[in-house]
Amino acid sequence: MSVVVIVALVALGLVDAAFSGLRAGLGRTGLVDHRHEDRRGLRRGAMLGVIVSSPAVTAMAVDLTVGGQRVTAYRDAGAVFLTIVGPYALIVLAGLGVYGALRWEFKYLASAVILGPFTLLRPFVVLAATVVAVRHTPAPGVAITAILAAASVLLVEPVLNRRYR
């Protein structure tokens, strides 16, 4: 159970960071064929995601070893976080599926109805999930880790945008 929650969180975090990198790289060159830039954006996002999440990972490691915190405390908070972020992620994935399946004339509808609005909602969903997880957990170490992790998730795109400037 703990493994499932942790794997789900790490996978979601990585995918989200990669997509943040993709978004940060869109519309930077004006080229018709930008597959190269897109792949680069995905890579940079994922790499930056790993880097900026190191404070959260460190905090958790310290808490679990030196602080003697139990893994179950992290699992419980993670599960609460996932109850909010999970459905969001599923809808976005479904949106991507719809985007892929639609005829070209209608593809933009998937962006207008699902992908675009959900890009706008994203920071609020992360914030809401963090607040709920923090309020839910009795352990301060878990709360700190959750806040650091949420901050790192929200940081990837603005940091990359700044570098492009």
């Binding site: 869109l26 519309g27 930077r28 060159t29 004006g30 070209w104 004339e105 593809k107 933009y108 962006s111």
Partner: peptide, 17 residues
Amino acid sequence: VHRELSRLGEELQLGRR
């Protein structure tokens, strides 16, 4: 601005339309 605009036009498939 126009690079972002081009990208938007691409999302709307303007070329194909």
